Computed example of a mutant assay.
Amino acid sequence: MELSYVEQINQAAGFIRSRIGGRLPAIGLVLGSGLGDLADEVEDAVKIDFGDVPHFPVSTVEGHAGRFVIGTLEGKPVIVMQGRFHYYEGYPMRKVVAPIYVMRKLGIQALVVTNAAGGMNRAFRPGDLMLICDHLNMTGDHPLIGKNEAELGPRFPDMSEAYNKSYRELAHRISSQIRGDDGNALELQEGVYCGISGPSYMTPAELKMLARLGGDAVGMSTVAEVIAARHCGLNVLGVSCITDMAIGEELEPLSHEQVMEVANRTKPKFAALVKSFVRVVSI
């Protein structure tokens, strides 16, 4: 007999717990395309490939190592997803968000979710970091469709503050203390993230539509994970690395390699921001 979704979550969490003993994490981090190197700074790390975890698929995207890294970062117990699953890989939404529920079962109370995104706001520039203040779910699907599992969360979770306001305020305060190569303080953008299904990049007409709907950045992840996080009671900080400009009227050809190149250049200030947040956030 096939296990229920909750049973699969519990079995996956139990497997990870058996590998890490009593060192349960307090903060979860999801590292997007080109940003996974931060996991290499986790101390006393236990690394578990997604493919070894019961009921987990594997990540198939370049730039995603596809594993959990559990240990200590900036003095706090963390579990890091070095890569993620995407809807466009062919996985059902419930598979895409399963790691969020597993991390919650392991004890995390806060989630930092990151991604590489195209900037639709003309005030943005490639290499900017954008705090996500809200999102538009344009994937055409939803991770909570179907039978609600009351053990995971309520049937109708509130999304009035999907991205925690106090976390964003803390990130802004932290950024003023982070210096770039030019000696200037890190300036953070803030905006609305549009989550699309992918895997194709958007057409000029589609980008113009999203901008008119209020979107500031666009990408192929994050939204479903944040819905699941709020469903199970997690507070969320969302950070997008703006890797390219997705202005419909001025759109130029784009490749995944270009996205990765800009994400790699942005890693030092991204890492400084996330590590500082982990160090000072109250859990």
Results as ranks from 00 to 15, higher is better:
Ala150Lys: 01
Gly153Glu: 05
Pro154Glu: 04
Phe156His: 00
Pro157His: 01
Ser160Gln: 12
Ser160Asp: 11
Tyr163Ala: 04
Tyr167Cys: 12
Glu169Ala: 14
Ala171Gly: 03
Ala171Ile: 08
Arg173Lys: 15
Arg173Leu: 14
Ser176Gln: 15
Arg179Met: 14
Gly180Pro: 06
Gly180Leu: 14
Asp181His: 01
Gly183Asn: 12
Gly183Tyr: 12
Gln189Asp: 00
Cys194Tyr: 03
Gly195Cys: 13
Pro199Thr: 09
Lys208Gly: 00
Met209Asp: 00
Arg212Asp: 04
Asp216Thr: 03
Ala217Gly: 09
Gly219Cys: 11
Gly219Phe: 05
Val223Gln: 11
Val223Phe: 13
Ala224Gln: 15
Glu225Arg: 02
Ile227Ser: 04
Ile227Ala: 05
Ala228Cys: 01
Arg230Glu: 07
Arg230Met: 12
His231Tyr: 03
His231Glu: 09
Gly233Asn: 01
Leu234Ala: 09
Asn235Ser: 15
Gly238Cys: 07
Gly238Pro: 04
Gly238Phe: 08
Cys241Glu: 10
Ile242Tyr: 07
Thr243Val: 07
Thr243Gln: 02
Ile247Phe: 09
Glu249Pro: 04
Glu250Pro: 01
Pro253Thr: 06
Ser255Lys: 11
His256Asn: 07
Gln258Met: 11
Glu261Leu: 12
Val262Ala: 01
Arg265Leu: 14
Arg265His: 10
Pro268Ser: 01
Ala272Arg: 10
Leu273Arg: 07
Val274Gly: 03
Ser276Trp: 05
Phe277Arg: 10
Val278Leu: 10
Arg279Val: 04
Val281Met: 15
